[in-house]
Simulated assay, not measured.
Amino acid sequence: MTDYGLDLQFGVFLTPSSAAPQQAVDLALTAEDAGFDSVTIQDHPYQPRFLDTWTLLSYIAARTERVKLSGNVLNLPLRPPAVLARAAASLDLLSGGRCEIALGAGGFVDALVAMGGPRRTPGEARRAVEEAVDVMRALWDTSERGGVFLPGDFYPIDGAKRGPAPAHPISIALGALGPRMLDLIGRKCDGWLPSLGNVKGGAQALPGLNAIIDGAARGAGRDPASIRRYLNLSGTFASSRTGFLTGPPESWATDLAELTQNYGISGFIFATDDAAEIEEIGTTVLPATKELVARSR
Rank of each mutant, 00 (worst) to 15 (best):
V83T: 14
D223G: 04
G116Q: 08
T289V: 08
D223M: 07
M115I: 07
S90L: 08
R137V: 06
G152V: 12
D190Q: 06
R297C: 07
A125L: 10
G123S: 12
Q47G: 05
P21R: 09
L69H: 04
V199F: 01
A167C: 10
A176Q: 07
S226T: 15
L29P: 01
D183C: 04
I157R: 07
L292M: 08
W54G: 13
D52T: 08
Q47R: 11
L150N: 10
P16V: 09
C99P: 07
A85M: 12
L184S: 03
H44Q: 13
V135T: 02
T246N: 12
T289E: 12
D33Q: 14
L51C: 01
F244Q: 13
C99T: 14
R228S: 08
R218A: 09
Q23K: 14
A276H: 11
I213S: 10
P207H: 11
P166D: 11
D274M: 05
V135C: 03
Y59M: 12
T30F: 03
A114T: 11
L69G: 01
A253K: 01
L184I: 06
L292A: 09
E124D: 10
S171T: 15
G117D: 03
T40H: 03
E279V: 14
E32R: 06
F154L: 13
L177W: 02
D153A: 14
N210K: 04
R120Y: 06
S38C: 13
G11D: 03
H168K: 15
R295L: 13
A216M: 04
T121F: 13
R222Q: 01
S296W: 06
D3R: 02
F36R: 04
G186Y: 11
D92Q: 03
T242Q: 12
R98A: 06
H44W: 04
G107Y: 07
G116H: 05
F13P: 11
T242H: 09
Y155V: 05
K161Y: 12
D274Q: 02
F270A: 10
L74G: 01
D158P: 00
N72C: 14
E279R: 15
T242L: 03
G197I: 13
V113Q: 04
